[in-house]
């Protein structure tokens, strides 16, 4: 998967005196602090679950975690977020390229509009979708068989609207970092503009596109607010893992809610590490 030309550049280590070591230590201290803070939250969650359920009952508790409801929510979360990544990148790659390479009137406005879903509370996206499908255009879309409200398709629509901006931003930054001269040379070698994009710019943007995909996926997997408004929380139908956490804690089963959260964390961590190691060649 990871081609040899994408190996991480070798970091050189200059001779470091006391100041250099102190500087490195202070930088790394921030990394440590952040990781420890997150780890403390996870440990607290695990501790709460173990204390509440008890060591002796952990086996029975695990059976709860693989109940049909939770497995259905897990499966729905995985396939919807993965579909969102694919659809999101279908938009993010051309949009990132266009915003990076072309100058057109109103470009600054468009650039800001792309960032809106990042800034807006996700709940607003759900509300806006609900309102939109009450309009003439929305009703027409539903009349041709594309129903989104309170449907699984609606989950993907919400995820797409909330998370694609992250992908666009990552891909645009990557194309910004690729000198257009590479494509220019490709054009002098017989490529059309599109040919130069597909044969040169796109392969060179490989890492950025993977990072964009990761950002879309993680954001899509975690959204909850717009789903509650636009698709509801129907068990076994429109229930994704964040919905499960909400439903479980609302009926007082805090330990199950926390266990699902831990499951989500583990799943996400495994997926991210795998993509980084296999896809980006990081260690």
């Amino acid at each position: 998967m990871n081609p040899s030309w994408f190996r991480q550049p070798r970091l050189t280590a200059p001779v470091a005196g006391l100041h250099g070591r102190l500087f490195a230590a202070s930088m790394l201290a921030f990394v440590g602090l952040f990781v420890v803070a997150l780890a403390a939250l996870v440990v607290a969650d695990v501790g709460y679950v173990v204390a509440d359920v008890g060591w002796a009952n952990l086996g029975n508790f695990a059976a709860v975690l693989v109940s049909p409801e939770i497995l259905a929510a897990l499966w729905l979360s995985l396939w919807t977020s993965t579909t969102t990544v694919i659809l999101g990148l279908v938009f993010a790659v051309p949009m990132g390229y266009a915003l990076s390479r072309y100058r057109f009137p109103g470009r600054a406005v468009v650039d800001s509009v792309v960032d809106l879903p990042i800034i807006l509370p996700p709940l607003v996206v759900g509300l806006s979708l609900l309102v939109f499908f009450q309009t003439g255009v929305g009703r027409w879309i539903e009349s041709i068989g594309l129903e989104f409200a309170f449907q699984k398709k609606g989950i993907i629509l919400c995820q797409l609207l909330v998370s694609t901006s992250f992908g666009i931003r990552a891909v645009k930054l990557t194309f910004d970092g690729i000198d257009p001269r590479f494509e220019h040379v490709a054009m002098t070698l017989g490529c059309t503009r599109a040919g130069a994009f597909f044969r040169v710019a796109l392969p060179m943007a490989y890492r950025g596109i993977i990072v964009g995909g990761i950002l879309i996926w993680t954001r899509a997997l975690g959204i909850f607010g717009p789903l509650m408004v636009f698709v509801g929380a129907a068990r076994m139908r429109t229930e994704v893992l964040p919905t499960t956490i909400y439903l479980e804690q609302s009926i007082g089963r805090i330990e199950v809610a926390l266990a699902v959260a831990i499951l989500m964390l583990v799943l996400t961590a495994v997926a991210l590490v795998t993509i980084r190691v296999v896809g980006l060649g990081e260690r």
Binding site: F6, D179, R181, F182, H184, V185, T188, V200, M204
Partner: peptide
Amino acid sequence: WGYVPQDYALFPH
């Protein structure tokens, strides 16, 4: 026309 840019712009991939 054969073109060799200043930084060569060899395709890294």
